[in-house]
């Protein structure tokens, strides 16, 4: 008796890069929602914990032809081939997993023992290590969200698509005697916060959901989008991510691919 609710869901995002203004609200919303600690010096982004990071992309052309684009990057929740996302199969202690029912790549901090193999496996740098004990400035620990456990030093963490919000939404549905959620009942913190409405979140398997309508994933080609303006990061690697980006600019779409290498900065 598999009590799993109905059909398999595949939660994913469509991020419209034409709409994204790089304001950073998604990053802050994520930090506040998920108890991501802040340190005095956060300027080395490779030492900084950020489940959501907004990259600034440039087209590399000289002034005044230069263009920029902002690219929010949560965990891509790669499906890989049949759920074998790059990071999941490498974890020696089963601390990370791919859930076929939701398409979410989990990361369980209390199971992780900090070998960082998954970090090496992830080409998007979404996995980050708790190099320090999580410390909140005096008094600020009062704003910690009890629905997300605080991660201890020495383990890897990453975006969970605000899974706890799924749990909370389900609780509400259960209380109302429903098993299925409506579109929009389960939203990630970044989706909710984005003032430009650039992030959409929903079930890619459900054609009624906006994400599925816009992303138009092609199941025959591992979810590659049929939308000419849509792309996924590093699609050629076969990571099969669930974050679809939209851009009308070709150079942006190319930047998400592996083929275009940026000229190296001195």
């Amino acid at each position: 008796m598999d009590q799993h609710n109905g059909s398999n869901k595949k939660f994913g995002m469509v991020i419209d890069l034409d709409k994204c203004t790089g304001c950073g609200a998604c990053m802050v919303a994520c930090m506040a929602e998920n108890n991501v600690p802040v340190r005095e010096d956060e300027t080395n982004k490779m030492l900084s914990l950020h489940w959501m990071r907004v990259y600034r992309l440039t087209n590399g052309k000289p002034f005044p032809q230069s263009e920029e684009c902002f690219l929010p990057r949560p965990c891509q929740h790669c499906e890989g081939h049949h759920g074998h996302s790059p990071c999941v199969s490498v974890c020696p202690a089963t601390a990370t997993d791919y859930d076929m029912h939701t398409g979410i790549v989990s990361q369980i901090p209390t199971r992780c023992f900090g070998c960082r193999y998954c970090m090496a496996a992830c080409p998007y740098h979404v996995r980050q290590f708790n190099w320090w004990d999580p410390v909140w400035p005096d008094g600020m620990e009062r704003m910690l969200n009890p629905n997300v456990s605080v991660r201890m030093r020495g383990i890897v963490e990453k975006c969970s698509f605000c899974y706890h919000r799924y749990q909370i939404a389900k609780d509400k549905a259960y209380a109302e005697g429903r098993r299925e959620l409506q579109e929009g009942e389960y939203q990630t913190a970044c989706t909710q916060a984005c003032p430009a409405g650039a992030i959409l979140f929903g079930d890619l398997n459900n054609p009624k959901h906006a994400v599925a309508r816009i992303a138009q994933p092609d199941p025959a080609r591992e979810g590659k989008s049929r939308n000419p303006n849509a792309f996924r990061l590093l699609e050629r690697l076969g990571t099969n991510p669930k974050i679809y980006y939209l851009s009308t600019r070709e150079w942006v779409r190319k930047a998400g691919d592996t083929e275009v290498r940026k000229p190296e900065k001195a």
Binding site: C23, G24, A25, M27, V28, A29, A32, E33, R142, M143, L144, N145, P146, A189, Q192, A193, C194, P195, A196, G197
Partner: peptide, 23 residues
């Protein structure tokens, strides 16, 4: 305890969105 500030859905000004400072 105040956990978080979110944008107010349905508000004529911001309709659920919110800037990072407000957050």
């Amino acid at each position: 305890r105040v956990i978080k500030v979110e944008g107010l859905k349905g508000h004529p000004v911001n309709d659920g969105g919110i800037c990072p400072l407000g957050l």
